[in-house]
Design a binder for these strands. Structure first.
Lengths: 112, 112
DNA sequence: GTTTTATACATAAGAAAATTATGTATATAT
DNA sequence: ATATATACATAATTTTCTTATGTATAAAAC
């Protein structure tokens, strides 16, 4: 977990991917899901998450819907049509990146 | 190549890995080697590279040796002992990161 | 022969994306 | 009663990069 800085630049892609899989999610839910999926290796901080969600919304990639649960509010985000397309792009870029990086740091394991 | 920002945070690791493999290299050579290894996908800019090399040197991970080739100077960098250890650490962190990220963006392809 | 491209270093200004710190408020568990 | 969890948010700062600029030599192209 000393490798947090490697995740820099990948937050948007992670959020978009989660929303592609889970249809709609709220911020806190995203932090918990990421912690669960990565077995605690990646902890998304609120200072990173909320500004990122706001930006994705401002860019038209996400729609937001406010819900009240008990006495607390939740903001559910979901992909717009444009967001779905951008998700596909970003996932492709991510795959390319992972392949390239794997090849750079461990040429033996990337046979192609 | 619209995914340059994904590489943020990985420059040090890339440099160290190259020096582990190639024993000693100079800055310009590193930029060319990376371009070659990634088939042009990653282009390390001088504005990123030189400060990074200086930092690694200041941190005691690299030793530098100045060579004169014709009328031009080259600064050859190589790993110190401490640099070799740190390289191993960073490569391990990178593998962990790549595995986690693969699992996040494509659960189907990361079967473990 | 002169202009462009390549080689080789470097730094400064600015932008992007995070961390860290702080704030508000409700709900649950100890 | 107090601590932890849920749920949002923003501001200050830091890290890491891009872009722009600078110096200088060598080779290739025209």
């Amino acid at each position: 977990m000393g490798n947090q800085k490697l995740y820099k630049g990948s937050l948007q892609t992670i959020i978009l991917k989660l929303l592609e899989t889970n249809d709609k999610m709220y911020g806190y839910e995203i932090t918990q899901k990421v912690k669960e999926l990565t077995k605690g290796e990646l902890k998304i901080t609120e200072g990173a998450l909320y500004p990122a969600l706001h930006k994705l919304e401002a860019d038209g990639l996400l729609d937001v819907e406010i819900a009240k649960v008990g006495n607390r509010l939740r903001k559910y985000y979901k992909l717009t049509e444009s967001g779905s397309k951008e998700t596909a792009n970003k996932l492709e870029e991510m795959q390319e990146f992972l392949k390239t990086m794997q090849h750079l740091v461990n040429p033996k394991l990337s046979l192609e």
